[in-house]
Measured scan of single mutants.
Amino acid sequence: MSRVPSPPPPAEMSSGPVAESWCYTQIKVVKFSYMWTINNFSFCREEMGEVIKSSTFSSGANDKLKWCLRVNPKGLDEESKDYLSLYLLLVSCPKSEVRAKFKFSILNAKGEETKAMESQRAYRFVQGKDWGFKKFIRRDFLLDEANGLLPDDKLTLFCEVSVVQDSVNISGQNTMNMVKVPECRLADELGGLWENSRFTDCCLCVAGQEFQAHKAILAARSPVFSAMFEHEMEESKKNRVEINDVEPEVFKEMMCFIYTGKAPNLDKMADDLLAAADKYALERLKVMCEDALCSNLSVENAAEILILADLHSADQLKTQAVDFINYHASDVLETSGWKSMVVSHPHLVAEAYRSLASAQCPFLGPPRKRLKQS
């Protein structure tokens, strides 16, 4: 649940008159999402009104509101027999009622949201009550392989729920002597030191190019640089560091992050930047690179990204790559990247197969709970 924001200063709310007192009302909304995959969808019983329910879910471990999704594969009634019906059901509720908006969509073979439908307002739910769409999607369109909505005969539904909580009022009075504290510009100011090479005390040599930097900042941000300058190493004695395995453009992006906490060109060089972040123990930059690479996972590059993640101990990226390969196994196994990995990294192939087997055979063990970014 997000923290209630402070109200904007009255002088910034309007260029008009300023009242002596004010009130700011925040209506709290808890948002969460749920993904439900139905394997072997074409084998569902086709009687009209037949119901399939998901397991229950909530916004978190401490949330007492429990929900589930309900599907009628062949419609709810005679009117909707040519459609799939989809509903959000409130299973248990400690209150007399709650209000919530919802959005349903289908994830296609690429994991993209399609055929989205959402409620136009927050509906009133009581325990045992459901709301949804009797005519969510035509069955003939859903079952047509050309539309790519049932890869490997799996129907994957994605649901986003927004639950309306209580409202909170914050009130106060205006004073004539309003003090406005300026925003912190530390990142910009440190970035200026790097860009202008002011007050530098060490030189970093990268592929024949020299960059002036500040030992204190490098040591504070990177345990690797800290070790170089702290001990009686040649880098500490000469205040000069030779860097041979990072390209200059990648190095500059890494230094921008060290000084400012930002990497504006990360998406263009996420793979190389991940390697640099791993070498210099820049954990936050490493996770930022993992996130960017996750966003660009595809059938063509899944094997290469899995190898990269394994090489640099990028655990979150590795998990996402394995899950992606499992979901698109029939396509990924035909790529040149996968065939190369079979020869060069057989242990990763074995890991992917083990994960695929456990996903398809849940009876082999208890269900695993899916539970950071600093």
Rank of each mutant, 00 (worst) to 15 (best):
S2C: 01
S2L: 05
R3M: 08
P5R: 04
P8C: 07
P8N: 07
E12G: 06
M13R: 04
M13T: 04
S14L: 13
P17R: 08
V18I: 03
A19E: 10
A19C: 02
E20Q: 06
S21M: 13
W22L: 07
Y24D: 12
Y24C: 02
T25W: 12
T25M: 12
T25N: 00
Q26L: 11
K28N: 13
V29E: 10
V30R: 10
K31W: 08
F32E: 11
F32H: 12
N39F: 05
F41A: 07
S42E: 07
F43L: 02
R45G: 02
E46S: 04
E47T: 09
E47G: 06
V51K: 06
V51I: 02
K53F: 01
S54D: 04
S58C: 11
S59K: 02
S59W: 10
S59V: 02
G60P: 07
A61Q: 08
N62H: 05
K66I: 04
K66H: 10
K66N: 02
W67D: 00
L69P: 00
R70W: 13
R70A: 09
V71T: 14
P73N: 03
L76E: 02
D77S: 01
E79K: 07
Y83S: 14
Y83N: 09
Y83K: 02
L84W: 07
L86K: 01
L88E: 00
L89C: 11
L90S: 04
V91L: 07
S92Y: 02
S92H: 14
S92Q: 04
C93Q: 12
P94D: 15
P94M: 11
K95G: 10
K95M: 12
E97Y: 15
E97W: 10
E97D: 13
V98H: 14
A100E: 00
F102C: 00
F104D: 00
I106M: 15
K110A: 13
E112G: 08
E113R: 06
A116P: 03
M117K: 07
E118Y: 01
S119A: 12
R121F: 10
Y123C: 15
G128F: 14
D130Y: 02
G132T: 00
K134H: 12
K135A: 10
F136C: 03
R139C: 11
R139K: 07
D140I: 03
L142Q: 03
L142C: 09
D144I: 03
N147Q: 06
L149A: 02
P151F: 07
K154N: 07
K154Q: 12
L155Y: 10
L157E: 00
F158V: 09
F158G: 13
F158W: 09
E160M: 13
S167K: 10
S167E: 08
V168H: 02
V168D: 05
V168K: 12
N169P: 02
N169S: 03
S171H: 06
S171W: 04
G172P: 03
Q173C: 03
N174R: 07
T175L: 02
M176V: 03
M178I: 07
V179P: 03
V181S: 06
E183H: 05
C184S: 06
C184N: 07
A187Y: 10
L190C: 05
G191R: 03
G191Y: 11
G191T: 11
G192P: 09
G192W: 05
W194K: 11
N196V: 10
N196W: 15
S197D: 15
S197K: 15
C203N: 14
C203L: 15
A207N: 15
G208W: 14
E210S: 15
A213R: 07
K215D: 08
K215C: 15
A216W: 11
I217C: 12
I217Q: 15
I217A: 12
R221P: 15
V224Y: 15
S226E: 14
A227R: 13
A227I: 13
A227D: 06
M228N: 15
M228C: 13
E230M: 11
H231A: 14
E232C: 10
M233H: 15
M233R: 14
M233L: 14
E234P: 15
E234F: 13
S236R: 05
N244I: 02
D245Y: 04
E247D: 03
E249F: 04
V250T: 06
F251R: 00
E253H: 09
M254N: 00
M254R: 01
C256M: 01
G261N: 03
A263V: 06
A263F: 11
P264C: 02
N265E: 02
N265P: 05
L266S: 12
M269W: 10
L273G: 03
L273Y: 03
L274R: 00
A275K: 06
D278L: 10
D278V: 01
Y280D: 00
A281V: 12
L282S: 05
V287M: 07
L293W: 08
C294R: 12
N296Q: 13
L297E: 00
L297V: 13
S298K: 11
V299M: 06
E300D: 09
N301I: 06
N301R: 04
A302D: 01
A302T: 08
L306G: 00
I307A: 06
L308Y: 01
A309D: 01
A309Y: 00
H312M: 14
H312N: 04
S313P: 03
A314Y: 04
A314K: 11
D315W: 15
T319A: 11
Q320G: 03
Q320H: 07
A321M: 13
V322F: 10
V322T: 09
V322L: 02
D323W: 08
F324K: 01
F324T: 10
F324S: 01
N326E: 13
N326H: 08
Y327L: 09
A329F: 12
S330W: 09
D331P: 08
L333C: 13
L333K: 06
E334N: 01
G337C: 08
W338I: 00
W338Q: 00
W338F: 10
K339M: 11
M341P: 00
V342F: 12
V343F: 01
S344G: 12
H345D: 09
L348S: 03
L348M: 09
L348I: 02
V349C: 10
A350S: 04
R354Y: 07
S355A: 08
S355H: 10
L356D: 00
L356C: 03
A359F: 04
Q360E: 15
P362C: 15
L364E: 12
L364W: 15
G365N: 15
G365F: 15
G365D: 15
P366I: 14
R368C: 15
R368I: 03
L371I: 08
L371C: 15
L371Y: 15
K372D: 10
